[in-house]
Simulated scan of single mutants.
Amino acid sequence: MNARIKISVLLAGVGLILAFLPFNAAKSFQLKPTELLEISSNSDMYFSVDEVARFVNNEDSTIQLIDLRSASEFMESNIPGSINIPFNDLLNPNWEGYLNQDRVRNVYYANGDETANMAWTIVSGLGYSNSFVMKGGMNEWYLTVMLSEFTGERITPRENSLFENRYKARRTFTQINSLPDSLKKQYLEAKRLEESQLDGGCE
């Protein structure tokens, strides 16, 4: 896709997004479509599911995973350590402390790429830095991490490292998501409280 088509698509997309933003949020949109296009053309805005699995395994405190799916989808299954900010609630002022900060890198994910890319466009356009997308979303997480298996007689050191990373993340994912709903809710509420206290309170 050439640059002119990309700019046209991005302009149309940003126009649609702005049409649905509350007036005060739309008024504060800071980046021009051409600036967003330049940033989005850089593959550095994406993390692979393997990179996210490594963040989970290392309990990386410089990463905040943001699940954009509905609350019911989030309760059913989510990547350990993530918080739920449904896409249709993204501009709720209560989330400002999570979205607009320099302390951590926010990694957005949904089921696929479309919703996460739209969320990235909104938050980046509003001037929030350190925003990224988990490429492929939960669909790719399931395919790559949860269904990963080794076949064959020999495995290279790199393949072994990759498989171990996926296996450890899969085990953590399964443990957290197999908790009874009541315990899972307590765990998620405790995590949210901890994050809000670190951010100076955003509840």
Rank of each mutant, 00 (worst) to 15 (best):
A169C: 07
Y108S: 00
G152M: 02
P22A: 04
D60L: 02
P86W: 00
E194P: 05
F55P: 04
L143F: 03
N78H: 12
S8N: 03
R158F: 11
L65D: 01
N92E: 08
A71H: 13
S196W: 14
T34H: 01
K191T: 08
L18A: 04
R154Y: 10
G137V: 05
S196V: 13
E114A: 14
D102V: 09
P80W: 01
N58A: 11
N111P: 09
S161D: 10
E35H: 06
N139Y: 13
G97Y: 05
L90P: 00
I79V: 14
G127E: 06
K32I: 08
S8L: 12
T34Y: 03
L37S: 03
R103N: 07
R105Y: 06
F29N: 04
L99N: 14
L193V: 13
E96P: 01
K27V: 10
N139T: 14
F132D: 01
F23I: 15
F20A: 04
N160K: 13
D67A: 07
A190M: 02
T34G: 00
N165R: 04
P93F: 00
A26P: 09
V14D: 01
K27W: 09
G200A: 02
S8H: 05
G13R: 02
S48V: 14
M45Q: 15
D89C: 06
A119G: 08
V9Q: 09
R4M: 10
N24C: 10
L126G: 09
L91T: 08
M134G: 09
R171L: 03
I122V: 15
P33Y: 00
E159W: 02
I7T: 10
A3S: 10
M45Y: 14
T174I: 14
A169F: 07
G13N: 04
G152L: 04
E51Q: 06
E153T: 09
Y98Q: 05
P80R: 01
K185W: 01
T174K: 11
D44T: 15
L183V: 14
M75C: 09
W95G: 13
R105E: 11
N57F: 03
Q30Y: 01
K135I: 05
R158K: 14
N84Y: 07
L143S: 15
D60N: 12
E149A: 13
N78K: 06
L11I: 02
Y109F: 07
S77H: 15
F150G: 12
N57I: 00
A71V: 13
E203H: 08
A3Y: 07
Y108H: 02
S48Y: 06
S28T: 11
A116V: 11
M146Y: 01
L162A: 11
A53G: 01
K32M: 10
L10I: 04
P157F: 14
V9A: 09
